[in-house]
Computed example of a mutant assay.
Amino acid sequence: MTDISDDSKYQEGLEEEVLEDEIDDDLDINGSEESPKIEGQKKTGFIKQFVSSKQPFYKMSLPISYNEPRSLLEKFTDMGLFLDIFLKTPTVESEEQRFLEILKFYLSGWIQQKETKNPFNPIIGEVHTCKWEHADSCTEYIAEQISHHPPSSAFCFYNTEKGVILHSYLSPTSKFWGNSFESSMEGKIVFEIPSLDEEYIVEAPKIVVKGVVVGSLQTETIGSTNLVCKKTGYSAEIEFKGKGLFKNKTSMVAKVKHTSNKKSLYSLEGRWDGTVSITSTKSNDTTLFLDINSEGQKPILPTEDQQEDNYSRKVWKHVISKMLANNEDEAQNQKAMVEETQRNLAKSREAKQEKWVPVNFSKNSQDTFTFNKLSEARKEIISNLKK
C-alpha cells in the first residue's frame, strides 16, 4: 500500500500509468447514465489532478461523481438498520449467547456494503441526529464532526428503555492503490450493556472502493479485527474478505473463542448473498446465523424546521438536491461552496487563535471523545432496572 500524500515518485509513475490506461477506461464501466467514454474521461481527468497534487488525501475534494448524496455522519446510521438484534441482548441470560448476539449485530452493519460511492466528508461542527421508534422503546442517535483536518467523528446510539448503548470515536484515513481508495477507521466501536457492566469492543473494518480508474465502481469490506468482552472472556477473530481476482465465495470468516479454551467454540462464514452461517466445533452442526436480505428499519429524521444550520442534511442540502436532479456540474459548484466556507471559517479561527470546541462530545482520559450525556444514559438504564 502506498500513502500518496508522501510519495511524489509514486504519483509520477501512477500518472504515466493512467495515461497509458486511458484508452481502456471505457471497457468495463456499467450503470452510468453517461456514455462509458465520458465517464472514463472524468475518471482520467480526476486521477491526473490527483497524482499531481501535493496535498494529503483528506484535504482533497473528490469530484461529485464519486460521492453518494449524504454525509459520513449519516452513513454511520447504517449500523442501526438491524437494531432489534442489539435491543434484546440485555435479556439474554447466557453469556455465550449474549456475545453471539452482539457479534451478529456488529456483522449486520458491515457484512454487505451495497453503496459504491463515498459519503461527503463532514465539516467541523456538523451534527446529525435521528431516532428509531420501536414497539415499546426509542433508540436515539447523535453524531458530531469533532475535527476536520484530520477528520474525526464521534457518535452514539442509545436506548435507555432497553438498556443498550453503542458509541465510537473514529478517525478515517485514506490510501490510494492505483485503481482503488482504501478507507481505514482508526478508533474503537463500543457496545455497552450497563445493567450487566459489560463492554464489547471492536474496530471497524476497512472499506475499499475499486474501479476508480479502470472498471466499474464497487465497494468491498476487508480487513481483520477482534470483538472482545473482557468481563465474560469471549472473543471473536473476524476477517472480512474482498472478492479478489478469483471471486471469493466467502465475504467474511470468524472464529469465536473463550479464555478457558484454546480451541475455537464456533466458526462463522459469510457469503455475498447477505447470509452468515455458524458451525459449532463441538457438534459440527451448521445453522443460519444471520440473514440481512431486508432493508432493515430506517431512522426517522427531524423535520426540516427542526434542523439547525449545522445539521448534516441542511449543510449539504443544495448539493444533495442538485445530485438528485442529475445536475452534476451545479452539485460540484455547491459542494465547492460548502468547502470554501469551511476553509474561510478555519482561517478565521486560526487568525483569532481560537480552538474548536465540540458541543455534544468531550475528550476523556483515553484521549478520545464521548457523548456528554453518556453517564446520564447509563444511570437512567440502571434506574429503569430497579423499577
Rank of each mutant, 00 (worst) to 15 (best):
L265A: 07
A351C: 02
I64Q: 05
D6L: 10
Q353P: 03
S137Q: 11
K131E: 15
S71V: 00
G215D: 06
L83K: 10
T341C: 00
L166I: 12
Y311A: 10
P172T: 05
L107K: 13
P172V: 05
T281F: 03
Y141L: 06
T219C: 15
G187A: 02
N159D: 15
P56A: 14
S375A: 06
V202R: 07
W272S: 02
H148Q: 14
G187S: 04
E16T: 10
L301Y: 12
D285E: 12
G296Y: 07
T91R: 12
K335S: 01
T259P: 02
S280Q: 07
E376T: 04
H148D: 14
N179K: 03
L290F: 09
T160G: 07
W110I: 11
N226T: 15
D285K: 13
T287Y: 06
E16P: 00
T303F: 05
S61N: 10
D7Y: 14
K231H: 01
Y10L: 10
L62E: 03
D367I: 01
Y169T: 08
S348M: 11
K298Y: 12
Q97Y: 13
K386S: 11
L374D: 04
N333F: 09
S5Y: 05
T116V: 11
K59W: 04
D367V: 00
L268C: 05
K59I: 05
T368R: 04
S251P: 06
G270Q: 00
I238Q: 08
T91P: 00
K347M: 11
L166R: 03
Y200V: 03
V202N: 04
M1R: 08
R349P: 02
I23G: 01
H128V: 01
K255E: 13
C130Q: 06
A143Y: 06
D309I: 12
E239T: 15
L166S: 04
I23P: 00
Y200Q: 04
E380V: 05
I165A: 06
Q342G: 04
F157K: 11
L217Y: 10
N30A: 11
T259C: 08
Y158A: 03
N344M: 12
I123Y: 01
E144L: 03
Q55A: 15
S183A: 06
R98M: 14
S94T: 05
N360K: 14
S174E: 10
E239K: 14
A336S: 12
C156P: 02
S267E: 08
E68A: 12
I47S: 03
F181C: 01
K335I: 00
E304Q: 13
K317G: 08
